[in-house]
Amino acid sequence: MELTRRKALMLGAGVTALAFMPFTPASAAVEDAIAEFTGGADAGEGDITLITPEIAENGNTVPVSVDAPGAVSIAIFAAGNPNPDVVTFNFGPLAASHSASTRMRLAGTQDVIAIAKMPDGSFIRAANQVKVTIGGCGG
């Protein structure tokens, strides 16, 4: 078989598609989890701050803080975990600030996504990548 430029390009495209395949199930799971929270609505940019460490040595306890002034509730998702749901904060009338901190488990290096629901029913999101040295899902 003669390897023409066209064939080489097609081969390259196929290899690239294969390389991305393993990530598809994980990202589909996180998209499903997010859709469950937002009801399928698109999340835009807005005044939401997600604080995570750039590098987490231990995936078992990764500190995370979110702050979204005025939000009704904030949900956090870990895109690379077997179960992407992490936590949902629902703020009551006596919450002084719409922020909270906790510690979570991350299976490996991945994106952490925070989505806030605003009083008008819109959603805003923020995402950070966290590099994890030792995963926190046991084995």
Binding site: V62, A78, T88, F89, S101, T102, R103, G136
Partner: peptide
């Protein structure tokens, strides 16, 4: 009166810790 209501999933670490702010009327 509610200050905060949190739903936890399995990705929350051992010994769950939370920090938040409340108003004291």
């Amino acid at each position: 009166q509610s200050v905060i209501d949190i739903n936890l999933d399995a990705a929350i670490s051992t010994n769950p810790y939370f920090e938040f702010e409340a108003k004291v009327p």
